[in-house]
Design a protein around this nucleic acid. Structure first.
Lengths: 144, 144
DNA sequence: GAATATAATGGCTTTTGTCCACTAAAGGAG
DNA sequence: CTCCTTTAGTGGACAAAAGCCATTATATTC
């Protein structure tokens, strides 16, 4: 087990990265959507159910439902009743939802580039490796 | 500059770590304080001014003021008028604020330990190194 | 087929955060 | 020094984000 100083380094990271993510997620994308709404949109893959989204993002079912309702009204996603389970809905992005997602993704890429642009190339590589390491260890990669 | 796949790894980290931090910060400590209140408490060092806290945590001045008011009422911090600038307040923790901070710190340590306890010892070390690397590169260490 | 569980949703409330106006005190510029 | 502008802190009003609970409709289990 890590010692006290090592744990403290991780906690220090958490505190600072809370700030960083807070800032990144504030300058929300195209201002078309709020951050939680964008998060939901980004997490929808073809056939996702509202429950799956709520579980994945750790959102309340009710809150998730409202966000999905709004995204549907804005015509970014559509809801079809599941064939297998009439209680459940199958979500998917509309064409304009796909467009928006593309926009969000490219804007997010730019944010990341801004974050690292002042670093030297070796530092950027080292930073990238570190993120990849954490992804691998903590999130066992792949499973987006 | 990093390429598209590398940027995507960082974005993937951000998405997943948003979840992680969301969970860590939800099971808030002793439930005595909310997460933003705990954040403010943790950021107070002897002589901090409300403005400094607001800047550091990227909080609205008004919101910060209210949190400080509550922490003062709960007797975790105290406010003294600055000698140099009568508009400004100098904040410091009371004894019971120090106690609470200790409790929060030890609880936070436990959370981190839980997060990594299932990993092998080499993995924990690798993970720690990665966090340290990011701290160094992105936050230029030290400056808590 | 009755009891139980689950998905989605709406109403209501709380928490979190923003905006604006106001007070009091500094900090110039003349 | 006096006027003008700026800054620190605060409260009121409000908006956004998130959670809780009840309800409906459908599945599942016994």
């Amino acid at each position: 087990m890590l010692n006290k100083q090592e744990i403290e380094i991780i906690r220090q990271f958490n505190r600072k990265y809370t700030n960083t993510l807070g800032l990144l997620n504030k300058r929300v994308f195209n201002t078309e959507l709020s951050f939680p709404e964008a998060r939901v949109l980004m997490s929808i893959t073809n056939g996702s159910t509202p429950m799956e989204i709520a579980d994945k993002l750790h959102l309340d079912a009710s809150y998730t439902s409202r966000i999905i309702k709004k995204l549907t009204k804005l015509n970014f996603i559509k809801k079809d009743v599941s064939v297998k389970d009439a209680r459940s809905k199958k979500l998917s992005l509309t064409d304009s939802g796909i467009d928006l997602l593309d926009k969000i993704n490219s804007d997010s890429d730019i944010q990341i580039k801004n974050l690292i642009e002042d670093l030297s190339s070796p530092q950027q590589q080292e930073l990238y490796q570190a993120f990849e390491t954490i992804n691998n260890i903590l999130f066992e990669i792949d499973g987006e």
